[in-house]
Amino acid sequence: MADLRNIMYEAVSDIAEPEESVLRTDLARGRQALARRRSTRTRRQFLVPVGIAAAAAGVLGLSVLGNGLGSGATPRDGISAGRDGSARIALISYTGRQAEGFTIDQVPDGWEIQGNTSYAVIAPVGFADQDVQELTGKIELHVAGKGELAVERAEARPLPVGGVTATRFTFPDPDMTVNTTDKPKVGPNSSAGLLLPAGKKTVLIQFTNAHDWDDATIVKFAAGVHLNNAR
């Protein structure tokens, strides 16, 4: 005697296990959705403060002009809007708690080192996301593994930092990187990266993609990164 369960199984018995390509497509779709979600969140987190700062600067500027004085606005929270609308970073000396294994001399104004991990995560003070596993809108540094040193980098070029030659490159856009065989593709969600020699090791730095990290700022930041016990 057939029961409902058997009839249901019978109805869908022809559905076979999916091929690997189907699973990879699911993965790609998921990664794209996650990247879109993070990108939207990041824009909200940064554009609102920049917008408020810009509005405040506008009010201040009007006030100053009204008094017959005319000086430029000082960047707030280490971020100011560049000509192209991207946010620029102002670095200041850092005196707060350091991450295990690193000493970092300078951070963007108003930023701090999060958590106490074997890698360094730098984020704005009071940043909503305190999870050190979540890196959106944060700078992250760690000692590069062999695979990371061997991997092909997009837009790689030498960049002198202090007495060493680092490699400036661009991380792939997660929206555009799908399969393991893909070449790294640069896109709107790419972020700046730096491979910084430190003794026999190399520090890998991933910068935020919401800011305008020009070479001078990267060099200034990287020159203040010290790997403890770098031998």
Binding site: L23, R24, D26, L27, G30, R31, G101, S118, Y119, Q133, E134, L135, E140, H142, V143, A144, G145, K146, G147, E148, A150, V151, E152, F171, P172, P174, T177, T180, T181, D182, K183, P184, G193, L204, Q206
Partner: peptide, 27 residues
């Protein structure tokens, strides 16, 4: 994000341990 000394699949473009683990677990 990778832990110090840990490798990753070349050219995969994964720099975050979290992303790599999520992908593997999801698959």
């Amino acid at each position: 994000m990778m832990e110090p000394g840990r490798g990753l699949v070349p050219s995969l473009g994964y720099e975050h341990k979290e992303t790599r683990m999520r992908d593997e677990e999801f698959l």
